[in-house]
């Protein structure tokens, strides 16, 4: 079912999405057993599972990953060979950050899958259609929580707006590989969400950029994260599971 070859510009977009899904999925798993309440624990677990599943499915379509095997490709590349975004890689030790990142990321991810569904042919286009059918749960999760938490107390709003601002300061990094139209659509969706939750988004969307507009530059904390992801495989790279 794999494409024998892939147009290099398309492969670059697929790699960026695959690495994003891998990193954000792995970051979401940090909340397993630690979510602020049971449903959140389960929700982040399910969302993480989806993103990791999508990462595997995308890696399987990449000729470079097929050549080395997807486990080796997904885990054992040099840091500079990853194309994940700072938004996906960022370590969120506060649940507010994780929730805001999940919302912003899934808004963006949905646009990337829609782009792939329109711009590619089967089986990649089929994978995109399938992924989109699974993504609606992620957006509903963000909406159901943020529409209640954002306007709940002054402290909640202050913290969530601060998180939103921090991640919007990584927009150049996230959108550097695709045409500007998608970023504009994303910003409109984000502004619409914020307005619905009682927050004025214009100033937030003009947050100064803190991340480089270059997906080959890893975020602070990536090395420690990568070491954690590869801790087991590094014990014996030839082991069969």
């Amino acid at each position: 079912m794999n494409e024998p070859s892939m147009d290099p510009p398309l492969a670059a977009v697929v790699l960026a999405l695959a690495d994003d899904e891998h990193m954000v999925g792995a970051r979401h798993t940090a909340w397993i057993g630690l979510g602020p309440f049971l449903e959140e624990d389960l929700a982040f677990c399910s969302i993480a599972q989806d993103e990791l599943g999508h990462a595997i499915a995308l890696y399987e379509m990449l000729p470079a990953a097929q050549a080395s095997g997807i486990d080796a490709f997904g885990l054992l590349r040099e840091p500079s060979a990853y194309r994940s975004s700072w938004l996906a890689e960022w370590e969120c030790t506060d649940w507010a950050d994780s929730l805001v990142r999940q919302w912003l990321y899934d808004r963006a991810e949905t646009l990337r899958w829609e782009w792939l569904r329109e711009m590619s042919s089967p089986p990649l286009a089929d994978l995109a259609a399938r992924a989109l059918s699974e993504e609606s749960f992620h957006l509903a999760h963000a909406e159901h929580l943020l529409c209640r938490v954002m306007p709940s107390t002054e402290e909640a709003k202050r913290r969530l707006v601060a998180s939103t601002s921090r991640f919007l300061g990584m927009s150049d990094n996230f959108w550097v590989d695709l045409d500007l139209g998608l970023r504009q659509q994303w910003e409109q969706l984000v502004a619409g969400d914020l307005a619905r939750w009682g927050v004025e988004g214009t100033a937030l969307l003009n947050t100064p950029q803190v991340a480089p507009a270059d997906r080959s530059v890893r975020s602070p904390g990536f090395d420690a994260f990568h070491a954690e992801l590869t801790e087991v495989v590094a014990l014996d790279p030839s082991a069969i599971w």
Partner: peptide, 8 residues
């Protein structure tokens, strides 16, 4: 009750 159950 909840969108998130014991499995995905």
């Amino acid at each position: 009750q909840s969108m998130a159950g014991p499995t995905r």
